[in-house]
């Protein structure tokens, strides 16, 4: 085979994620509150992914939290919390060549939350739940793209479909888990995050 697609797709994911993370840290300055809040949210998501990811396989109370983070704090924050989730949890569960693509996919989940906020500023928990459900499948499809490009030949639509079909059960479990968790805990989470979002901005009043 003349072109090693596995090599290129992995490298591309790696480069993209490096550029995005470096760019994320370079643009503008951040206050200590923003920084620590995002870091702790990322740690919380990573812990949720690792603690339940091992026992319950794919029912993780995490993806909806990333989505809501993006919705409340904006796309940039959502991307970071999403991308850091697999990175941090993989420090404990095992890093692999899959990490960059996982980071990209999770980052997209968070960024899509910010997009939802722009499109539907007054969206309730229902819309977020539907989005989380869709992301359960979309995340699987994105990760299958990497898996397919590295391990399957020839690279045709048919083989991709078969790869996707092989993971369909897991994807459905993930989507269902997202649906349940977001429906049960979404409202409460959104309230808590909005409270801290208000608390994050400090205004110094002159001459008080």
């Amino acid at each position: 085979m003349a072109v090693s697609w596995g090599l290129w797709s992995t490298l591309l994911g790696f480069l993209a994620v490096c550029l995005l993370m470096v760019g994320w840290g370079r643009r503008g300055s951040m206050t200590s509150k923003q920084l620590s809040l995002l870091a702790v949210l990322a740690a919380f998501c990573a812990a949720g992914r690792a603690v339940t990811g091992v026992g319950l396989l794919f029912l993780q109370p995490t993806m909806f939290l990333v989505e809501i983070t993006g919705f409340v704090f904006g796309a940039r924050a959502g991307f970071f919390v999403g991308a850091a989730t697999p990175l941090v949890s993989n420090f404990f569960m095992g890093q692999g060549p899959w990490t960059p693509w996982q980071m990209l996919s999770w980052g997209l989940v968070g960024a899509s939350g910010g997009l939802l906020k722009v499109l539907f500023p007054r969206a309730g928990n229902g819309l977020l739940t539907v989005a989380c459900f869709c992301w359960g499948y979309l995340y699987g499809a994105l990760m299958d793209l990497w898996h397919w490009s590295v391990f399957v030949r020839p690279l045709t639509l048919k083989t991709y479909f078969l790869t996707w079909l092989a993971g369909f059960g897991f994807d459905s479990l993930r989507a269902l888990g997202n649906l349940l968790f977001c429906a049960a805990l979404g409202q409460q989470t959104k309230k808590i995050l909005e409270y801290f979002h208000r608390k994050m901005v400090v205004e110094y009043v002159e001459g008080l």
């Binding site: 840290g25 995002l38 870091a39 740690a43 603690v51 850091a84 949890s89």
Partner: peptide, 24 residues
């Protein structure tokens, strides 16, 4: 040296990971 804020946030998150599990 390359990406100060990103790395600092990831370091904080990594440091906080066991704390979250312990708190749980």
């Amino acid at each position: 040296g390359f990406a100060y804020y990103s790395v600092l946030a990831v370091v904080l998150a990594t440091r906080f990971f066991p704390v979250v599990v312990r708190n749980l």
